[in-house]
């Protein structure tokens, strides 16, 4: 049996996208400066990698190709359902435990010492949740930076991107690139949200908010701070 040149080509693309290309992208430094392009690259790798893998398999065994496609789709569906169920439950808890902030629309305050800020995406509108520990810790400007950052996550639909990469990772747990991709994308969404917040507040304010809330423990903090100080100088 002759293997068709197209499927050979697809196989080569699949191998490239499965290993050397994502490794290079994960190591590249320009991704910190150009998070938008980097994000498009990761999404392209994920989609093209999936299709080329399925395409290359198709000529070897149609059954295997269909199985792989179904597996990927099923995992995406399951992750989506699980995520939205968990999000709904979380929203119920938030509504029960928090009080709306009178001076900020769609923002709720929970009583907790830990400095916490996050945004719950959802219909009809997303909710930003802040803890009173955070409000005490930050100045008004810093708080505005944090809120702008959170809103950016939701308006740019980062939860959808993260969910898709998480599904990819769950579908292919033995595939080392999937976890690397998930990590890289998780950092990129932070950078993208930072860039949005920088349009509202000066870089130094955002940097000090990041530093105060995170300390230096979180692994995503160092690259974020480095970017902010570079741009400022």
């Amino acid at each position: 049996m002759l293997i068709h040149p197209i499927s050979l080509g697809l196989g080569a693309v699949a191998v490239l996208l499965a290993w050397p290309v994502p490794i290079a992208l994960a190591r590249a430094r320009w991704t910190l400066r150009r998070p938008v392009i980097a994000m498009v690259c990761w999404q392209g790798i994920a989609v093209a990698g999936g299709f080329s893998m399925i395409g290359a398999l198709w000529s070897l065994s149609r059954g295997a190709a269909v199985l792989l496609a179904l597996h990927l789709l099923l995992n995406l569906g399951l992750t989506a359902v699980g995520t939205s169920r968990q999000r709904r439950r979380h929203r119920q808890l938030v509504e029960l435990l928090s009080s709306p902030m009178p001076d900020r629309p769609n923002t709720r305050l929970i009583e907790n010492e830990a400095p916490v800020a996050y945004c719950l995406p959802g219909a009809p509108r997303s909710v930003t949740v802040l803890s009173d520990g955070l409000v005490r810790l930050l100045s008004d400007d810093e708080l505005a930076a944090v809120v702008a950052h959170e809103r950016a996550h939701v308006t740019q639909h980062h939860h959808v991107v993260l969910m898709a990469f998480k599904a990819w990772h769950t579908a292919l747990p033995w595939f080392p690139i999937a976890s690397r991709a998930e990590e890289a994308v998780a950092l990129l969404v932070e950078l993208l949200a930072d860039d949005d917040a920088r349009q509202v507040v000066p870089d130094e304010v955002l940097a000090s908010a990041v530093e105060r809330v995170a300390g230096t423990d979180a692994s995503s903090v160092a690259p974020r701070l480095a970017r902010l100080s570079r741009a400022g100088s």
Binding site: T79, G82, T83, Q86, R87, H90, E113, A114, P115, V116, A117, Y118, C119, L120, P121, V146, H149, E150, H153, V154, H158, H159, L162, M163, K166, A186, L187, V189, E190, A193, V213, A214, G215, D217, A218, S219, S220, V221
Partner: peptide, 21 residues
Amino acid sequence: DREAVLARFLGRVSKSETDHL
């Protein structure tokens, strides 16, 4: 799946937060 559920200010949780929790 926390990260996919909530859009959070931090990518990761710091140790002091975990201790507090």
